[in-house]
């Protein structure tokens, strides 16, 4: 099971990030999760929302460039060591983790987003270890 994440190119200029998030809000895009990776020149805004297709269209119309990536959303227990446990499972399966970030779903569960090099292998490994992964609907 995987989740669609949208990444948006943001220039590293004052107000660019604010403008992008304001733009999405004005178009009634409901953001569930958001993270930003940045360098000196640019940032990549990563978002999870309920309607990725509509969001892509809205972004394109606004002159943004974006891309959709399938990522894994793993449910994480609120206790010490649960993050380490997931990473160990993935490492054992030889899965490379490009980046990860956390968020809270409306049902009160905490999730970690994992961008990995092989979703199928990672999903199977997590399932084998009894770690639940969510699909898009589970998060809204």
């Amino acid at each position: 099971m995987s989740v669609k994440q949208i990444s948006v190119f943001i220039e590293n200029k004052k107000g660019e990030l604010a403008a992008a998030t304001r733009y999405l809000a004005n178009h009634n895009i409901n953001l569930r999760a958001l993270s930003i990776a940045d360098t000196q020149d640019f940032g990549i805004l990563r978002i999870i929302c309920d309607d990725p297709k509509a969001t892509e269209t809205v972004l394109r119309e606004g002159g943004y460039i974006s891309t959709v990536t399938d990522v894994l959303a793993a449910e994480i227990e609120d206790k010490p060591g649960s993050m380490a446990a997931i990473l160990e499972v993935l490492a054992e399966a030889h899965v490379i983790v490009e980046y990860t970030y956390a968020f809270l779903a409306p049902d009160g569960h905490a999730y970690m987003i994992f961008r990995v090099d092989d979703n199928a292998v990672a999903s199977a490994a997590l399932a084998g270890a009894g770690i639940k992964t969510a699909n898009q609907e589970d998060l809204f």
């Binding site: 994440q5 990444s7 990776a37 640019f42 990549i44 394109r60 460039i65 891309t67």
Partner: peptide, 14 residues
């Protein structure tokens, strides 16, 4: 940058 060249990872763009 063109839409085709964009990637979700900082590494690819770097």
């Amino acid at each position: 940058l063109s839409p085709e060249q964009f990637s979700d990872t900082v590494k690819d763009l770097a």
